[in-house]
Simulated scan of single mutants.
Amino acid sequence: MRDEFAALARRALRDAGYSMKAAARETHYDPAYLSRVLNGKQRPSKALALALDSLTGSGGALAATVLDDDDAARVARSTENPSRLDRGTVDALAGVLAAYRRLDDTAQPRTIIPATMVQMKELTRVLKEARGPHRDRLADVASEWIQFTGWLFAQTREFGEAVPLLNEAVELADETRNGTLAAQALNFKGYIARQQGRPQGIARWFGAAANTPGAHPAQRIGDYLQAAGGLAEMGERDAALRMVDDAEKLMDKAAKLPPPTTAYWLTPNFNRLNMGICTLALGRHNEAADHLRTGLAGLPDELKDAPWTWEHKDALRRALEAA
Rank of each mutant, 00 (worst) to 15 (best):
D3Y: 00
A7V: 13
A7M: 11
R10N: 03
R14W: 05
A16W: 01
G17D: 03
M20L: 15
K21R: 15
A23N: 06
E26D: 11
E26W: 00
T27G: 01
P31V: 06
A32Q: 11
L34P: 01
R36Q: 15
L38F: 06
N39C: 05
G40E: 03
P44R: 08
A47W: 00
L48I: 10
D53N: 08
G60S: 05
A61T: 04
L62F: 11
D68Y: 01
D69I: 10
A73S: 11
A76R: 14
N81Y: 04
P82S: 07
R84A: 12
D86P: 04
G88T: 00
T89V: 10
A92P: 02
A92V: 09
A98F: 03
L103V: 05
D105S: 11
A107S: 12
R110F: 09
T116Q: 14
Q119S: 05
E122H: 11
V126R: 09
E129M: 13
A130G: 07
G132H: 06
G132K: 10
P133K: 07
H134K: 11
D136W: 10
R137L: 10
R137E: 15
W145D: 01
W145A: 14
I146E: 11
Q147E: 13
Q147M: 12
F148W: 13
L152H: 02
F153L: 02
A154E: 13
Q155R: 14
T156P: 04
F159V: 04
F159K: 02
E161L: 14
E161H: 13
A162Y: 04
E171Y: 10
A173K: 08
E175N: 06
T176L: 01
T176K: 09
R177F: 10
L186M: 11
K189W: 00
G190R: 07
I192E: 01
R194V: 00
Q195C: 08
G197W: 08
R198D: 15
P199C: 07
G201E: 07
F206Y: 15
A208M: 12
A208W: 07
A208T: 10
A210N: 06
N211W: 05
T212W: 06
A215C: 11
R220G: 01
Y224N: 14
L225V: 02
L225R: 11
L225T: 01
A227L: 08
A228Q: 03
A232C: 07
G235K: 10
D238K: 13
D245Q: 14
D246K: 12
E248P: 00
K249T: 03
K249I: 00
A254Y: 02
A254W: 01
A255M: 05
P258L: 09
P260V: 09
T261Y: 03
A263G: 06
W265S: 08
T267C: 02
F270P: 00
N271C: 03
N271F: 03
R272D: 13
L273D: 05
N274H: 15
L280C: 02
A281G: 04
A288I: 08
H291F: 15
R293W: 00
T294W: 03
L296R: 07
L296M: 06
G298I: 06
P300V: 08
K304S: 04
K304G: 03
D305N: 15
D305H: 12
P307L: 01
W308R: 13
T309N: 04
H312F: 15
A315Q: 10
L316I: 03
